[in-house]
Amino acid sequence: MNLEEISLMGERNVSNSLAGALNRNILRLRKKIIQESLTDFDAVEHRLELVISVHGIQFINDSKATNINATFYALQSMKNPTIWIVGGVDKGNDYSELIPLVKKNVKAIVCLGINNEKIKATFSGIVPQIIETKTMKDAVSSAYMLGKKGDTVLLSPACANCDLFEDYQERGRQFKKEVKNL
C-alpha cells in the first residue's frame, strides 16, 4: 500500500495509521481489511477535515488546533500553497516556532479575532499579505479571494476560541457554513 492511499492527511496521522496497521499482526487481521480501513477512514470533525473544494481551492477545517503544536502539524501537512486562517485568544504563544513552515507553505495569512498584533508582528515580512478580519464570513471570503486553483485554505487557529465563538466546534461549524455559502 502506498502512503498516498491513506485517507487521513499529515505525517502524524500517517504515523498513527501505520502503528495501527502493525497491530494487525497481533490481532491476526487480513491485510486487505487494514488497507480498506486506512483508505476510507473519515477524519474526525474539526481536525484536518476536508470541507469541500470551491473552484479548485481546497478548504480544510482544523478548528481543534488551539495551540502552536497542533497548528505545526497542520501546516506541515499542507502540500499546496496555503492561505492560513489564524487567531483567537493568544495563550502566550511563541509563533516563531511556525516561521519555517510558514515560509515553506503559506502564501497569505488571514487573521480572525480581536487582537492580532502578535501574529502580525511575527509574520510581517515573511508572507506577502496579512489581512485582519472580525467575522468568519469575512475570513472565509478574504481567504477565497486570495486563493487560486490548486491552493488550500486552512483554518488552524493556533489559539483558544476568541470572543467570536463559544468553542472550537462552533468556530469549525461556522467555517464550514461560510465555505459552503461561497
Rank of each mutant, 00 (worst) to 15 (best):
K104N: 14
D94V: 11
D90S: 07
G20C: 10
V106R: 07
I33W: 12
D42I: 00
I83N: 10
L182M: 14
A108T: 03
Q174H: 12
T133D: 13
I57R: 05
W84C: 07
G113N: 09
K79T: 01
E11P: 04
P100A: 01
E49A: 02
N69T: 12
A70N: 01
T152Y: 06
I119Q: 09
K118S: 15
T71G: 01
E5S: 15
M145R: 15
G92K: 09
D151P: 07
G113C: 08
C159M: 07
E4T: 15
T152L: 01
S53N: 11
L3I: 13
K91F: 04
N115W: 03
T71R: 02
K103H: 10
G92V: 09
V14G: 00
L18T: 09
K103C: 07
K118C: 07
G113L: 06
E166H: 12
A43P: 04
L155R: 03
V106H: 05
N2S: 15
Y144V: 05
Y168D: 01
G10N: 00
K180C: 15
L164I: 15
K180I: 11
G150A: 09
E5Q: 14
L3N: 13
L29M: 13
N67D: 05
P81F: 08
V102G: 03
S156Q: 02
N25K: 14
N69Q: 14
P128W: 00
G56I: 00
T122Q: 03
G113K: 06
S37Q: 10
K118F: 05
K120P: 04
P128T: 12
K31A: 13
I57C: 11
N80Y: 09
A65E: 02
S17R: 05
A139Q: 08
K148E: 15
G147P: 02
A121S: 15
S17K: 01
I83V: 14
N93V: 05
D42K: 14
G88I: 01
Y168S: 00
G87K: 01
V127S: 07
G56K: 06
S156P: 07
L8H: 04
